[in-house]
Write a protein that binds this DNA or RNA. Structure first.
Lengths: 220, 220
DNA sequence: TAGATTGTTAATCGATTAACAATC
DNA sequence: TAGATTGTTAATCGATTAACAATC
């Protein structure tokens, strides 16, 4: 087992770009029906993602996966090492703030547990929703965020509420002691430096698409 | 995932990273209440995004914005130039496939028109939904994608349907002649090389958060 | 003017790719 | 063995940052 203690290189922080690559490898290698046999070569993966095979081997080295000349890498071993390197094998709890359509859609996703995430509570301001459930999760009033999140040891807040209340909700989540916020609202949150924010701003996608529509379409 | 290669370098293509920066500038510069006066300096913007001010000035140069020594850049001019460079001032039409919660949540967003996007149709397989509307848009049967999209000259498909039907829907959209697909499903789509795909895979966010939760929390 | 800020070139840094020996 | 593939170092490329003259 390749522990973090085992290789000094593992102490190095995995950069954003590398994280994305690992996630792509993971998604691809765990896709059913794509592979037969348990061996996969760096060039095969590289071809799939239209990248250089050296990059793949370096990535494998970073997370301590050893390959076999003439065979490649053991798929199951790569999957396991990515899970370990990214911490997908450790469990943590999240709370969703905003039991609207977006919150509902996000909770519908079935794959969270395989990423270690468990949704422990949902919050909403609408009194009519209180006490009911969403995807099997009880809906609590927003004012109870601090109390409930502390009791349930929630460490991630998922913001799916309207922009107007996003900052206020974030403040409560921070007060409750969450480490990170996954922000699906269009607000630019202001949080203490020790709280990590991942934004899923729709506007970045809109920009890329608009640009492609008007610049790229002609030559493609 | 599905790379969109084969770009016949049409002049000065704006790279992905730069597009993101422009979008951030745009979002920040158009935020009400953040600015007074119409001048903004590169260092002010750089500070806001914790980046180097030289980068900001180079970006401004790329889209043809001239600054003024001791004053900075004219905010309105920057905004206008970004709109032009990214094509936000040109209109195009999109169709949403999947009138579920996710589709509804995405359609709720009010800002599309300021990015040039107009949602012209919604599709769903559920016969009970046909003829009804979602965010003021009529819902058509999925089997009519090709017909309706051609009539309405739709050039972007937004996939918010379940993973099982995502590929089939994408095929129909391609057949209808869309240039690009905005994929909110978890499927890796296979499309012709001339069709641009932007994935909003939830798993990349999950990976980054899982990693932060287990590695980053201590030292950040 | 004096000085803050732009615009641009040069230097640095990091990431990607090429090359090739080691390996099974 | 022969040869495909790994593992790693060197070379290249691009992106970021530093430096500074030009400017108003």
């Amino acid at each position: 087992m390749a522990q973090s203690k085992g290789n000094k290189a593992a102490g190095k922080k995995i950069k954003h770009a590398a994280l994305e690559r690992f996630m792509h490898y993971y998604h691809c290698l765990t896709s059913p029906g794509l592979w037969d046999g348990d061996w996969v070569t760096s060039s095969r993966i590289a071809y799939y993602f239209n990248m250089d095979d050296t990059q793949v081997r370096k990535d494998m080295a970073q997370i301590g996966v050893k390959g076999m000349p003439r065979q490649g890498f053991k798929r199951s071993e790569v999957i396991e090492s990515i899970r370990h390197a990214l911490g997908l094998d450790k469990r943590y709890k999240a709370a969703v703030v905003g039991a609207g359509r977006l919150g509902g859609a996000i909770m519908e996703y079935r794959g969270y547990s395989s990423y270690g995430l468990e949704i422990a509570a949902v919050f909403d301001v609408d009194p009519a929703k209180l006490g009911t459930t969403m995807s099997g999760c009880r809906i609590y009033p927003t004012v109870d965020i601090v109390k409930v999140c502390r009791i349930k040891t929630v460490s991630l807040g998922i913001l799916t509420c309207p922009a107007e209340v996003a900052q206020r909700s974030a403040d409560l989540l921070v007060q409750a002691g969450v480490y990170a916020i996954w922000n699906f609202s269009t607000t630019n949150l202001i949080v203490p430096g020790n709280v990590f924010v991942r934004n899923e701003h729709i506007s970045v996608g809109l920009a890329e698409l608009a640009y492609f529509m008007n610049r790229g379409s002609g030559s493609y």
